[in-house]
Nucleic acid binder design. Structure first.
Lengths: 131, 131
DNA sequence: CTCCAAAACTTACCTTTAGTAAGTACGTAC
DNA sequence: GTACGTACTTACTAAAGGTAAGTTTTGGAG
């Protein structure tokens, strides 16, 4: 059972250009609006729910919970609950999560660094549309 | 006017963790469901609308047009119209677009390569929730 | 000569997802 | 005893995404 047909299929590479390939949902989780920021943030180490919420400007509790569940489901992070009152839940990147987050970080840094350049082009593009 | 306050602010790095920072919309454009695939596809060279549509499984014309407009507006690609009948419109990466697309590609390749690993974890996570 | 196909969109409509705000449980501090 | 903090979930609304059909013009099939 450790080498079933299902296993072998799943070991095959994904193809993002194929409509039904599940790799698309994985990419969506890691590049989603809040998913990418969570992955980057957790590179600093374990953090609890409320910490993450405070550090990511503009996330709602609902979306953060949803995002964390998706990333946990894909095995990018682990969730540890301490049954105290008030509750305490800690999130930590797995090795797999640490691995993707590095690529997400590189992309994010590129965007931050090149924001000025992009904004210039946005303006000249908007201006050219007014003619 | 080439060094106004606005210019100087815009040359500053973006901050993705700040709620109102426009870098967020840039990252969203390049990592959007169809945006990332378009950027990767155009690394092969100039392509026309219908070619892109055919090569990306599942895009609708509406979403593709919208995606291309966003990427053009940010200066990641150029649009060239040939006023023939039927119309012919070609899309080409700019140097800036080629630059981001590289990072998007690395991330996409990681996801494709590690799909099997992620799917395994999805299943064991789903199983653990059933208890 | 008429009808259809093709390309790159746009528009109207419907569905799914995201966002907002309020609710919950429980113990501790004031 | 009233309010507070944590980590959520739920109900509702707003926004985004998806589907399907319409548009324009002309070369080619029949």
């Amino acid at each position: 059972m450790s080498d079933s047909i299902v296993n072998r299929i799943q070991r095959r590479r994904g193809d993002l250009f194929a409509e039904a390939c599940p790799s698309r949902s994985v990419l969506e989780h890691v590049t989603s609006r809040w998913g990418s920021l969570v992955l980057i943030l957790l590179r600093d180490g374990t953090k609890r729910f409320s910490e993450i919420r405070r550090e990511i400007g503009g996330v709602s509790e609902k979306m953060l919970a949803q995002t964390l569940q998706a990333l946990e489901g894909d095995g990018f992070l682990t969730r540890k609950v301490y049954p105290t009152v008030p509750p305490r839940v800690e999130y930590t990147l797995t090795p797999l999560g640490h691995d993707v987050s590095e690529h997400v970080l590189v992309l994010a840094l590129w965007v931050e660094k090149n924001l000025g350049e992009v904004m210039k082009r946005r303006e000249s593009h908007a201006a050219s549309r007014k003619n």
